[in-house]
Computed example of a mutant assay.
Amino acid sequence: MKRLLGISLLLSLSLFKAQEHISSFNAVTLTYKFHPKFFIYGEGQLRGNEDYTYPDYYEIKGGLGYNLTKNHKPFVGLGRYVNYKDHKLSREEFRVWLQDVIDIKKGIVKFENRFRAEKSWFYEPQIDKTSQRMRYRYRLNVSVPLNSKTIQKGTIFANAYDEIFLVTPMKPTFARNRVYGGFGYQIDDYFGIVSGYLWQREFEAKGNKNLHFIYLALNINIDGTDHHVKTYDFPGAD
């Protein structure tokens, strides 16, 4: 029986290794509040989707946000997204989006509700093909400080979220689901680090696909206003 269990375990591990692997998801974000109501946001990403050590995807994006209220932040953004396959550029994307973020606090726990509508234009140079896409996303992001009542310098916090993606005109309409869990540390007034595990499920007509990411990010927050109370934003894997 022990030998049978051992063989089953080895077969299971071999199957997982053959079909699914660990991917890398690295990001640097910058949030700069230059007015009590307005802020700019920028982000760079580098991912290894097929091989953890070889980056085959990058994106550069940013935009302008408005603090409508303390817990309500509309935002408009744009970005460039590039995929590689077999060490060759396979697809370029230009994207614009509108989003609305509504925060709800219950004690020390913050629930972030993010709604986003995206318009994308694609170009695949290897086959000289262009296409377009509309995508709609909703994310519920929960964060809680672990060693203080609020997130401040020296705070360790936990973060988890679930996000769904709906697309048109492509099929299936329900295209993706992301689930994330991890921890962060606010180093000082400007720098924070976040790391965790991100599971991504791709729903496709030809078959579903799972991606397993190790997420690592450096978040930079700069408040150029005269406010004495400093807030920290943690965008999460995007």
Score class of each variant (00 low, 15 high):
K153S: 12
F157Q: 10
A175H: 03
V142M: 08
Q152W: 04
R139Q: 10
P172S: 05
M134Y: 14
N159K: 09
V142H: 03
P145F: 02
E163M: 07
R139N: 07
N159M: 08
F157A: 04
T130D: 08
M134K: 04
L146D: 04
K149T: 04
S148E: 03
V167A: 01
K153G: 05
R139A: 12
R137N: 14
G154H: 10
A158Y: 00
A160M: 14
G154W: 15
M170K: 13
L166N: 03
K153D: 12
F165N: 03
T155R: 09
L140W: 08
N159V: 00
T130K: 11
Q152E: 15
L146T: 03
T155G: 09
S148P: 00
I156F: 15
L146M: 07
L166C: 05
E163G: 08
K171T: 14
Y138A: 06
S148K: 04
P172D: 03
K149C: 02
G154I: 13
A158E: 01
A160G: 13
L166T: 07
A175G: 00
Y161D: 00
Q132H: 14
G154P: 08
L146R: 09
P145A: 04
K153N: 11
R139E: 09
L146C: 02
F157V: 02
S131L: 12
F157M: 08
M134V: 02
R137E: 13
F157I: 02
T130W: 03
N141G: 12
P172F: 09
P172G: 09
R133S: 08
F165E: 06
K171Q: 13
T130L: 01
T150F: 03
L146K: 06
D162G: 09
K171G: 00
Y161T: 00
F165S: 03
A158K: 00
Y161F: 15
Y161H: 01
S148D: 12
P169M: 02
F174I: 10
P169Q: 08
Q132S: 08
E163D: 03
L146A: 05
N141E: 14
S131C: 07
S143R: 05
Y136A: 15
K149W: 01
T130G: 04
L140C: 11
A158T: 01
S131P: 03
T168P: 01
R135E: 14
I164V: 10
Y138T: 11
F157K: 06
V167I: 09
K149A: 02
V142L: 10
Q152V: 11
T150K: 10
N147W: 10
F165P: 04
M170D: 12
T168R: 04
V167T: 04
I164M: 04
L140A: 11
P172C: 06
P169E: 03
T173K: 12
I156N: 08
F174G: 05
N141F: 14
T173W: 07
A160C: 13
Y138K: 13
T168Q: 12
V144M: 13
R133F: 02
P145E: 09
P172H: 06
A175T: 00
F165W: 14
S143F: 05
P169R: 06
I156T: 06
S131H: 07
N147R: 10
Q132C: 00
Q152R: 14
Y161W: 11
Y138V: 12
R135M: 13
M170F: 14
N141R: 15
G154Q: 08
R137W: 13
F174V: 11
S148Y: 06
P169N: 06
K149I: 04
T130A: 07
S148A: 05
Q132V: 01
F174P: 10
A160F: 13
